[in-house]
Simulated scan of single mutants.
Amino acid sequence: MSNEPQRTRRSQRILLRVLCGKVQMEPQPGPGQRRREKIMAEEKRAKLYLAGPEVFLPDAVEKAREQQALCARYGFIGLHPIDNNIDVQERDPTQILEIYRAIRLFRGDVHALLVRFSTDALLSALKIYMGDIHQIYQCDIVVANCNPFRGALIDDGTAYELGFGNALGKPSYGYIDQMIPAVENIVKRYPCTIREDGVPVDQDGYLVVDDFGTAINLMMQCGMLMSGGRLIEGNFEHCLQAIRADLDSGTLRLPREAADR
């Protein structure tokens, strides 16, 4: 004997209860809700600002996309400064001014500065600078390539970005091919002479006395430690692995997580 009439009556009773407000039907997610859920999921992924001299490579854009793909593999969103360099010929200062207003960190009259250099090549530099600062402001963690660049030391732009991120309270991580003492690295890569007392002196006459057990300038390496991060021996992916492990273990807590607790 078929149970179809019984199932029909049961369905009718459920429908009646729904219409009377006694049963809450589970709403089906629409396209708008799915988009919101996707955005929320993205917001839960840590954003990494990828500092380093890779922007000067001949294949800088391809390299940036490779780094961003690696970030995604480890559950991160990579904010790359190359994305601020692609349209530097755009001469409209309004876009930069909007970035400035969003950040509100600078004391100078930025509008007057932009108008002053609106037809000068420096406007491109200002656009890159403001774009990079905006990305650091948006990120959760600063990740820096700390390998020597055009000499014995870290790229100076990368050093600035590390310090800026630390000043904003962002954790910072760095990676370097070899974790050797800074003094050894300087003597190896920069013309130096050794005094009778064994202290190296560089070709500009400055003492090479950075012997504090750090592989890079102590301000940057100590800044990483104090921020909750550290300097990793290895490549970019090794650094991502370390960040992922620190987050998963609870060793690293992002500022927004600490605020929520």
Rank of each mutant, 00 (worst) to 15 (best):
E42V: 02
M179C: 12
G131W: 07
V199E: 15
R253N: 03
R244V: 02
R34N: 09
Y100S: 04
D155Y: 06
S172T: 14
I86K: 14
Q24S: 14
R17W: 10
M226E: 10
Y190H: 15
E42Y: 10
K22D: 15
V208R: 07
K47S: 02
V55A: 05
E62G: 03
D140W: 05
I86C: 14
D204S: 15
E237H: 07
P58F: 04
H134A: 11
A144Q: 03
I96K: 00
V208K: 08
T193V: 12
K44H: 07
E62N: 04
P27H: 05
Y74G: 01
A159R: 00
D109M: 13
N3Y: 11
I96A: 06
Q138G: 02
V199T: 15
D246K: 05
K127Y: 03
T94Y: 10
S249C: 04
E4H: 14
G78L: 03
L105N: 12
G228V: 04
K188M: 06
S11W: 10
M224W: 14
P93E: 08
L218F: 15
H80T: 01
F117L: 12
E4W: 11
N145S: 13
Q241D: 12
G234V: 02
M40E: 10
M226S: 09
V88E: 09
A144R: 03
Y100K: 03
D120E: 06
R45M: 06
V55H: 03
A112I: 07
E42A: 13
E90P: 00
A182W: 04
I186M: 08
A64L: 00
G108S: 12
F236N: 04
L126Y: 10
E62Q: 09
L50K: 04
Q24I: 08
H111K: 14
I39A: 06
P200D: 13
R230A: 06
A64P: 00
I99Q: 05
P5G: 13
I216N: 09
G213W: 01
C139R: 01
K170N: 09
D197H: 05
E196A: 15
R9N: 07
I176K: 13
V209W: 11
R101S: 06
L207K: 13
G198K: 07
A121I: 09
E237V: 08
V115E: 14
R253V: 01
I216K: 01
G108N: 10
C146V: 09
Y206W: 14
A125H: 11
Y137C: 06
P81Q: 02
L153I: 05
V199I: 15
T158G: 05
F212T: 12
V18Q: 14
R116D: 14
M220Y: 14
E62A: 11
F106D: 12
V209R: 13
L19Y: 12
P81H: 01
E42H: 07
Y49G: 03
V143K: 04
G78S: 09
C20R: 13
R256C: 09
K127M: 10
E98G: 00
G198I: 09
L48Y: 04
N145K: 09
D87L: 12
G151V: 08
Y129D: 03
I232P: 00
Y175A: 05
Y190K: 14
L254P: 02
A41C: 05
L79G: 01
I154W: 04
D248Y: 08
C139K: 01
R116M: 11
L126Q: 09
P255W: 11
Q24Y: 03
S124W: 02
G52R: 04
